[in-house]
Nucleic acid binder design. Structure first.
Lengths: 256, 256
DNA sequence: AAATCGACTTGACTTGGATCAAACCGGTCC
DNA sequence: GGACCGGTTTGATCCAAGTCAAGTCGATTT
């Protein structure tokens, strides 16, 4: 704190208009003068290291954040002290909205590796939104989408099978990487097995076993955090719970 | 349809200012002229019967709703065709926000018994919010709260113990009834065991058994849908998972 | 009062995944 | 090189909750 303003701040303050994430981010659908107004709210941040926290439980709402490089996780801590991962946030994804309801954060946001964020002071954002209907609508839409994601996640957690959850998880990540213009078939998981477990409501051993099983069955190839999707159709089937029977039948056959 | 406008429409169009739910509802914190502007958006509706649907999956976003009497459930339907209950909505609670992200509903809302809603056409609501910063903020806040509720629910679903979930559920309902000025210690469940099961990610038999267990242990009294909280402290302990050991120890003792 | 029906409870059995425990793998640091 | 360490895999065992199958209860109808 109280550092002299670093010289590269100029570089960091690149505009949304030039950002490759523009259409996947809060500015999506906002143009011209309105975009300039929104840009005035955005503060770009110095790089973060693995484990750096953007906010903690109980912090008053100051800003919401958008990952611009790297991945973040948000973790909630229940009264028993257990951590559970609420979500993983890839570039272009907004987080920190959890404090809007009460004015205080109920979870904490942690960088999973080297990362960078755009910070939007909430007061300014809301003020600007009050003047720009397009931004107001977009803000509501983004919150709605985040809520939709929560509901999908909720659905995943009520689905029973562990390997279904893993299959869905891998599929979902692939889809998100693809949208970012990266390879969806092969990627590096930015999180540990334990973090996946806490996200999916499973024990870490179960996560590991499920990965191994999908690997054995030839749907994906897993080596540590390196994942490759080999049979996307089968993975999709596994994700929607169709595979269970098929596989059992095949196993029975091969045994008998 | 095309009914002549019923005479009691006047009665139905009672103002938010006179409504007992005012401070527990969307208008909370909005006063004077602003409240009048909000009221102009609200349409009051004829009574609904058990099973009536307000919207279905895929319906385009028209309105959001607030229960004014009775209880609603929102249910999501996943691609396997299974229904899971996303939430129960008591008077004063806003729902239908699920369509804001995409413009289409991803769940359906069903009355659990005789009920009544206030309907707020979303276009008008957003338009009015754009002109009233207090409403804009309140709308964001309500969405944030709804998202917080989802996250608490998510936490419940990752907690393992079935009776913990039931204890939390009963506690939560009691709390909500109390806020509505009704008795929190004794109430009638507006939903079936099956609906609770689909909400908590359990089998209906497990729900039934968990109720019986909490009953046996003297925390609550259950007779069909009638629930009475007898030992709130023990229930609270059960809800946070502290009871498991205690009870087991006592059982062991009484057996030995 | 008997018959029907939906909601609920209870019992017996089975199983998926948690838990405990041990080994393994790939970095990094002496 | 070897020791160490966090993350990961794999094996063995156990238990909570799911599934299947009877009942029971209460409300409504005949």
């Amino acid at each position: 704190m109280n550092d002299p303003i670093p010289l590269d701040l100029v570089r960091l303050r690149r505009s949304c208009a030039e950002c490759s994430l523009q259409q996947l981010c809060l500015p999506a659908g906002i143009e011209g003068e309105d975009l300039k107004r929104l840009e005035a709210v955005v503060q770009r941040r110095r790089p973060l290291e693995a484990g750096d926290r953007l906010f903690r439980v109980g912090d008053p709402l100051q800003s919401v954040f958008i990952a611009s490089e790297g991945t973040f996780k948000t973790v909630g801590i229940n009264e028993s002290g257990e951590e559970h991962v609420l979500g993983f946030h890839l570039p272009g994804e907004l987080f920190g909205l959890d404090a809007i309801g009460t004015g205080y954060h109920r979870c904490e946001a942690i960088a999973l590796g080297k990362a960078r964020v755009c910070e939007l002071p909430f007061g300014e954002l809301a003020g600007t939104a009050a003047q720009l209907p397009s931004l107001q609508l977009q803000l509501l839409r983004v919150m709605g989408q985040s809520s939709n994601r929560d509901q999908d996640h909720l659905d995943v957690l009520t689905r029973r099978q562990a390997s279904e959850r893993i299959a869905l998880f891998v599929q979902g990540l692939a889809e998100r990487y693809r949208r970012l213009g990266q390879a969806g078939n092969e990627f590096q998981l930015p999180m540990t097995r334990d973090e996946i477990a806490r996200y999916l409501g499973l024990a870490l051993e179960t996560v590991s076993r499920s990965f191994s099983r999908l690997h054995e069955e030839g749907m994906i190839s897993v080596r540590g955090r390196r994942v490759r999707i080999i049979n996307a159709a089968a993975l999709h089937a596994a994700a929607s719970g169709c595979e269970a029977e098929t596989v059992r039948v095949e196993k029975r056959r091969s045994r008998g």
